[in-house]
């Protein structure tokens, strides 16, 4: 179960895996996520679905190595298996023909943006995509995003590839230049989504974000993932992960993402000290 069939290394810290999970793939839709355990003693970590293949029975995930669990996941090779995968969880993206839409993917957020852009295009939308990353190495899927977008803008924070800009800059220019954009999706680090929402707010264009809060079960049982949207408490796992970004309390999300920083550091250091050899793979 949950065998890794393929692996791609996008950068030293960004990796893609394709995992065999036929029943999950059968039901997966754009915008949903899975909860993964790397090993039996492992945490339950939520990862957004980057792609799915119902015929092959596979789920594709792209992850950035940040803490112990994702670093450990990055050491696995094709033929290895995950301890568990649960899903598909969360509500799928509401795909409709909205007219013209903008899809903003930042860093590892490009991955979940891809199936959403693809479905939006298939539904008849004019899809303008903006993808960006801190630096060239962290950028991926320019070709895939290009194939599902009518227009594609690529940028890097440091200018090491294509346009030197934060994703908010071309986003603002697009909104200034045209008044037919009816909806925007922004997926990436919380801070990027926060600033995308600040950018789009004055233009009054609904902006959907996919929140990445800490979770345990992912099924509404624990409430670890709670956020405030429009002044109301919501659970990202069952009420989301997509929300109206203009209503999200970003500072609360950012604060709650930091609850376990000291413990995460300890776990990472312990793992790296104990697994120095397999890290060389």
């Amino acid at each position: 179960m949950y065998e890794i069939l393929e692996k791609e290394v996008f950068s030293a810290v960004t990796k893609l895996i394709v995992v065999s999970a036929p029943d999950v793939a059968h039901k997966a839709q754009a915008g949903q996520f899975v909860v993964v355990r790397v090993v039996d003693e492992g945490e339950r970590i939520p990862l957004t679905i980057a792609d799915f293949d119902r015929e092959q029975g596979t789920i594709t995930m792209v992850f950035q190595e940040v803490g112990k669990s994702t670093i450990h996941l990055g050491t696995l090779q094709p033929g290895d298996s995950l301890a568990s995968m649960t899903g598909p969880l969360g509500r799928p993206t509401e795909i409709e023909n909205y007219g013209t839409v903008i899809c903003v993917g930042g860093g590892v957020g490009i991955a979940p943006m891809y199936p959403i852009a693809r479905e939006l295009r298939a539904a008849g939308n004019h899809v303008i995509s903006i993808i960006g990353a801190r630096t060239r190495d962290l950028l991926f899927w320019e070709d895939k995003m290009g194939a599902v977008s009518d227009e594609l803008i690529v940028c890097t924070d440091d200018g090491s590839y294509k346009r030197k800009a934060l994703v908010t800059e071309p986003l603002k220019e697009l909104l200034e230049g045209r008044n037919d954009v009816s909806r925007i999706w922004a997926i990436g680090p919380a801070i990027m989504m926060k600033f995308c929402c600040l950018t789009t707010k004055s233009f009054g264009v609904p902006t959907i974000v996919s929140l990445n809060s800490i979770m345990v079960d992912g099924t509404g049982m624990c409430g670890a993932c709670r956020v405030e949207v429009g002044g109301k408490t919501k659970f990202v796992c069952v009420d989301g992960p997509e929300f109206d970004g203009h209503e999200v309390d970003w500072d609360l999300l950012l604060s709650r993402q930091r609850i376990y920083l000291p413990e995460e550091k300890l776990a990472r250091e312990k793992f790296l000290a104990g697994h120095h050899d397999c890290m060389k793979k």
Partner: peptide
């Protein structure tokens, strides 16, 4: 959440188990 972290995820054995 508290009990799931402690019991199911064995949070009392952190960092031998991963969930804090």
């Amino acid at each position: 959440e508290f009990l799931t972290r402690v019991n199911l995820m064995k949070g009392y054995l952190f960092p031998e188990w991963d969930t804090p």
